[in-house]
């Protein structure tokens, strides 16, 4: 279970939070003016990368506030938490996180326990 540092309440167990999927997916300002394709991309299509991911969380069983987090999806490390409206960190800020826990291939299960020689 992850430990999540709510920007309003402090560190709490993951079970108090809900994940809100990819962050920074802006709702089109003028929905009528966008094409079916652009609209469906906003409604249905989300990124699901292995590695660094910008995502939303909400402190459901707490202050009910939404906030953003940067998480390495292959290691589950939460690298940064910031409030809505704050400038998101750039990828360059995360040099110290392994891209994956064991230098495993970019695609695949990531289920490697043995150090590759």
């Amino acid at each position: 279970m992850l430990l999540i540092n709510c920007p309003y309440c402090g560190e709490r167990d993951q079970s108090e939070f809900s994940n809100g999927g990819e962050a920074h997916v802006a709702r089109p300002k003028n929905p009528e003016l966008v094409s079916d394709r652009e609209w469906s991309e906003y409604v249905f299509i989300r990124a699901n990368p292995k590695g660094i991911f910008y995502e939303r969380w909400v402190h459901t069983h707490g202050c009910k506030k939404w906030f953003n987090a940067v998480r390495n999806t292959s290691t589950d490390e939460i690298l940064k938490i910031y409030k809505l409206g704050e400038e998101p960190p750039t990828l360059k800020d995360f040099k110290n996180t392994p891209k994956t826990p064991s230098g495993e291939p970019k695609v695949g299960s990531g289920n490697f326990a043995v150090k590759k020689l």
């Binding site: 290691t75 826990p101 064991s102 490697f112 326990a113 043995v114 150090k115 020689l117």
Partner: peptide, 23 residues
Amino acid sequence: FTQSRGLIKWDSTQLVFKPNSSF
């Protein structure tokens, strides 16, 4: 140790898997 996602390696002298690096 492996549950914690630490990496193990094969020790060919003692014929064991043993911890290599902690995660």
